[in-house]
Design a protein around this nucleic acid. Structure first.
Lengths: 221, 221
DNA sequence: TGCGCGATTACGGATATCTGTAAGGGATTT
DNA sequence: AAATCCCTTACAGATATCCGTAATCGCGCA
């Protein structure tokens, strides 16, 4: 089993539960915890410099803001920095997020080793995740369904930019002009019109207001 | 100090932290926990029936859905039901929510005794909250700022209904007709126009898309 | 009673959105 | 080379929006 683990998690109470469980169930002696990403990163550096690197990082995704100024503000940034420093480190993400697409992208883009969804069985799953990762396998909370195809439509960056601009109050004419100014093509008002209309169909929206409301609610823009 | 406490919290790990801390710091012997609102409610009923009611309920606001069918789906419903059953019960809400307006309404509408915001100091604050509540006082996490006045504009139910309809894709003409059909006044398209335009000013929005995006993001519609 | 004020409503004009049709270009296929 | 498909663009008509002006109504108040 891993000889030491670093846990980055800003919820004091959750933290306590995790530490306690890992210690008791997995007999991991050296469990260290940090409430801030920056401090967690420091620990990784120090451990590596003293030839006693952490083989495993368990991190949340979201860290609440407070008075402290921070360089690293999310678990994603932390795990990227950690991987840059120490490529061999195993990473388990433990968070509330339950959107399969976002979790999938953590595996694909960040190469995490396991994802555990906080919830009623979060602790049991975390133990299972640590065991899997130790054996070189990946793990995902079973309630996460990686549905491919289905009702999930892709939004490419072009669509996304248009929608963000619309949501921030720009008209299609203004967007068209902005794109022309930046020499990005396509850029005609007509094409923007068509793109957005197609999204109406895909998302079952009746007009722009409806589409924007849906997408903002889904956290996609 | 309270002789027993019921904790409703669907995050297993958080739960463990809370139970442990209350037991150690406050010497509360009888600490019971439930992962589901319905079961928590049952415990309250049984305890009351056997003449050993819980003097204190600590509950989260949000409970994740799973396969189990549930009557009570949120902490708000749970605490209402609890108060209906046993009006004297003290209630501490322990949740992620950090919107002062929503928290304030919990005090004003639901008469909760304390609100503790989950976070880096959540456990320490929870202890403090229990002590305050035991002394008959209220408690709120210090990072919650009850700002009155300021930049916070009120949205009455009429505005809210219009905005919700717009966000769901209705045109102003359709909204006007819907209101006329239900004999709700005012209901002219012109008035709806004016109302929404005034909201542009108040919220610094450039058009309806912008306004809806802002309000959805703030969770107000 | 009359005045003032705000809310509601009507209306019109300038823009913007939504939708359909059609033309052109580039890439792939036959 | 011709046919096909997809993307981009132009254009046009029907609606919808945004915004200004002005008339009307209800209500408190002197």
């Amino acid at each position: 089993m891993f000889n030491k683990v670093l846990i980055a998690e800003d919820f004091q109470d959750t933290n306590l539960g995790i530490v306690d469980t890992l210690r008791r169930e997995l007999k991991i002696g050296d469990i260290q915890e940090e409430l801030y990403c920056d401090r967690a990163m420091n620990r990784l550096k120090v451990a590596l410099a003293t030839k006693a690197p952490f083989p495993l990082l368990v991190t949340d995704l979201f860290f609440k803001e407070d008075h402290n100024v921070r360089k690293l503000t999310s678990g994603k940034e932390l795990l990227r920095a950690a991987r840059a420093l120490q490529p061999s480190i195993k990473v388990i993400v433990n968070s509330m997020e339950d959107d399969p697409k976002k979790i999938q992208s953590l595996f694909e883009e960040e190469g995490i080793n396991a994802y555990v969804c906080k919830g009623r069985y979060g602790l049991k799953e975390l133990i299972s995740a640590v065991e899997h990762v130790y054996r070189g396998e990946t793990f995902v909370s079973p309630q996460i369904q990686f549905q491919n195809g289905e009702n999930v439509f892709e939004l490419d960056n072009f669509d996304l930019d248009i929608l963000k601009d619309l949501a921030s109050g720009m008209t299609k004419k203004e967007i068209s002009e902005k794109l022309k100014g930046k020499n990005i093509t396509p850029n005609s008002e007509s094409t923007i019109d068509k793109k957005v209309s197609k999204l109406f169909d895909e998302f079952g929206a009746r007009n722009t207001n409806h589409l924007i409301a849906k997408l903002v609610r889904e956290g996609r823009i």
